[in-house]
């Protein structure tokens, strides 16, 4: 699996396929990126679970924080890890102990641990690294186009007006896999030099 560039269909199949997402490292502080990524995914209809041992007893968008993945107590489809690269492996090891294990491990923008990815993939999980699910969902649905971002997709169908809890179609025509060719190159160079 090439983790420098992801085909749009790979990301699309994950975001269309999962229903429940546990966010490890979710923050109740409303100016943290994890807070607004959590909020966006909840608004787009995902069943979100905040995981953070430091905030047990509090809630995020009405969902109670749990201390660990084991405490969720029901099957989850995807784990979105909002932690630095150095804290990824223990989360993946914990995820693999779940029964049933999640189908997807997603590491946030800036986070990448190739050894942890290999371990998850060996157990049959799909892995995404160094991406944000909010950005990818906004991109494939073209909602992110409001900010002048290149969604790298086209559609001649009427655009939806997003409402609370609404899932948007991600099935627009892609005109480039992964990030753009240039940003893929840059990401690859950066990985090799670190």
């Amino acid at each position: 699996m090439n983790h420098d560039a992801y085909d749009d269909n790979y990301i699309r199949s994950i975001l269309n396929g999962v229903k429940s997402i546990a966010m490890v490292g979710a923050s109740p502080v409303n100016v943290r990126p994890s807070y607004f990524a959590f909020k966006y995914l909840a608004q787009r209809g995902y069943d979100m679970i905040p995981v953070n041992p430091g905030h047990v007893g509090k809630t995020l968008m009405g969902k109670p924080f749990v201390a660990s993945l084991a405490d969720i107590g029901r099957p989850i489809d995807m784990i979105d890890i909002f932690r630095n690269s150095s804290h990824i492996m223990p989360v993946v090891e914990e995820a693999l102990k779940l029964s049933p294990p999640p189908r997807v491990i997603w590491m946030q923008l800036g986070a990448r641990d190739d050894a942890a990815a290999e371990k998850a993939e060996a157990a049959g999980l799909k892995v995404v690294m160094n991406r944000c699910p909010k950005i990818e969902y906004g991109r494939l649905s073209s909602e992110i186009s409001w900010m002048g971002v290149n969604s790298r997709t086209l559609s001649a169908k009427r655009a939806p007006v997003p409402t609370q809890g609404m899932r948007l179609s991600l099935n627009r025509t892609s005109f480039g896999g992964g990030q753009t060719a240039a940003s893929d190159r840059a990401a690859k160079n950066k990985t090799e030099s670190t």
Partner: peptide, 29 residues
């Protein structure tokens, strides 16, 4: 924190189409 419009000095839906169009043609993000 959210995708959307506030004020045309910062962003506008017509301008956003132009922005994405040129980003796509140039191969930018």
């Amino acid at each position: 924190q959210a995708f959307g419009n506030i004020y045309t000095r910062i962003g506008n839906p017509t301008n956003a189409v132009l922005e994405e169009r040129v980003a796509a043609l140039e191969g930018g993000t």
